[in-house]
């Protein structure tokens, strides 16, 4: 069953064509990893899915909902986009936690304000989620009092608090010190196992091997190649994919 379907997504910034014509369907419980060189349009693609950037054209389907890009903004459309966003959990590279709220309050915020759930109920739910990401003992800490890995796990819990149909991750471990990467990937793997539908932009090959049902290689605003992680990593067909994998593995050796 398809959860999310992107059709003919196009996006330019002024003269710079960033997404040329992206088509992508993700089924329920599928984990899709997107890789590609820096500047190839991966972040822009994720941001277009939730209209953090408005695509110039294309259709985004999430469950039963369909939003067409590039048409005029009015009240109905604003509501549609908001509904789309409520059903997608977005995890940012820089976490973007709310610094004036504790971990617990960060996770309660969406359900309370957007879904109008009663405070006590939202709190119970937030506690459950924070336990799930292994932060039961950090609930009353402010983001500034948490490590990067802990902050990103709170951010994942915050995204989950809206009970999204799909989770989008934009390089969730890129801003982390190497020793903190694992704890975040562990939480993501756990979610994948439970059947969460996820699109993950990451260069963590080990994560892709373990958790991805499909790996997509993007370059220059296009999907160049896709397949299972085994196919992409061991038997890439396109030169650009080969070159990219070469570069990434060299980086790993250098580290």
């Amino acid at each position: 069953m398809e959860v999310i379907k992107l059709q003919n997504i196009k996006k330019s910034f002024n003269e710079n064509i960033v997404l040329k014509d992206i088509n992508l369907t993700v089924n329920k419980s599928e984990v899709v990893v997107i890789m590609g060189p820096s500047g190839s349009g991966k972040s822009t693609l994720l941001r277009c899915v939730t209209f953090l950037e408005e695509p110039d054209g294309g259709i985004i389907k999430l469950g039963e909902q369909e939003v067409t890009a590039g048409s005029q903004m009015n009240k109905q459309r604003k509501n549609d986009i908001r509904k789309l966003r409520q059903n997608t959990g977005f995890v940012f590279q820089q976490f973007n936690l709310f610094p004036h709220k504790t971990a617990l309050e960060n996770v309660m915020e969406g359900p309370m304000i957007i879904k109008k759930i009663a405070r006590e109920k939202a709190k119970q739910k937030a506690i459950t989620l924070l336990k799930k990401v292994g932060l039961a003992d950090r609930m009353d800490h402010y983001p500034a009092q948490l490590s990067g890995g802990q902050q990103q796990r709170v951010a994942i819990a915050r995204a989950l608090s809206m009970e999204p149909m799909v989770m989008l991750y934009d390089e969730p471990t890129s801003a982390l010190d190497p020793e903190l990467v694992r704890e975040v990937l562990q939480v993501m793997k756990e979610l994948a196992k439970e059947g969460m539908t996820m699109i993950v932009v990451t260069h963590e090959m080990a994560f892709a091997k373990d958790a991805a049902d499909r790996v997509i290689f993007m370059d220059d605003g296009l999907i160049i190649e896709e397949g299972s992680s085994y196919e992409i990593f061991n038997n890439p067909k396109e030169d650009r994919t080969k070159r990219f994998l070469q570069d990434v593995s060299e980086e790993i050796v250098l580290e």
Partner: peptide, 23 residues
């Protein structure tokens, strides 16, 4: 206030007003 704050708020589904007021 960092741009990411508004993005995090609206990406959860908050309105502009809610994001302003709360975040």
């Amino acid at each position: 206030v960092e741009k990411g704050q508004m993005e995090a708020a609206v990406s959860m589904g908050m309105t502009y007003g809610e994001a302003m007021r709360r975040i």
